[in-house]
């Protein structure tokens, strides 16, 4: 049952990757806009993710960082978490791969996300670097 779910998730992700590779959300109109931005006019921590993914799939990390640097910064964390899960599958526990479970780590993530949310909405340099831009 869990395997079926994973296969479905993999298929959906693959289709999404193809769509985000072919179409550029900065140009194409059919991608959904951020509901938070649409309602408030302020960027959320996820604003620019779709455009960033398009750039990432084309290997352009600089352009992706321009749209959402938090997404780019989260990639090493996601890679680490994946590696830690593989370690746990093999060894039955996280061993020294337990960063995700250290008390300071989620706190740091929280501070980073909240700071990013606030700072990217400040309408002056250098914080405008954090707002989605080309």
């Amino acid at each position: 049952m869990k395997l079926t779910g994973n296969i479905i998730a993999l298929i959906v992700l693959s289709i999404a990757a193809v769509i985000y590779f072919i179409f550029n959300p900065a140009v194409a109109s059919f991608f959904p806009n951020c509901p938070f931005y649409s309602l408030t006019g302020y960027y959320c921590p996820g604003c620019g993710s779709q455009r960033a993914i398009h750039q990432l799939l084309h290997g352009d990390i600089i352009a992706a960082s321009g749209y959402n640097v938090l997404l780019v910064l989260s990639l090493p964390v996601l890679a680490y978490a994946a590696a830690a899960n593989i370690y746990k599958m093999v060894n039955g526990n996280y061993g020294r791969w337990d960063l995700i479970y250290k008390p300071w780590f989620p706190k740091t993530v929280l501070v980073v996300v909240l700071s990013f949310w606030l700072l990217r909405n400040l309408p002056f340099y250098p914080f405008t670097i954090l707002a989605p831009h080309t």
């Binding site: 996820g46 993710s49 959402n68 989260s74 479970y101 250290k102 780590f105 989620p106 929280l110």
Partner: peptide, 23 residues
């Protein structure tokens, strides 16, 4: 983190707060 970055909704942040609490 994934929900925060991809779903554009603050629920992910509540999740992060509870993740911190778990640890």
């Amino acid at each position: 983190i994934l929900v925060t970055i991809f779903c554009c909704l603050p629920f992910g942040i509540v999740g992060i707060i509870y993740a911190s609490k778990v640890n």
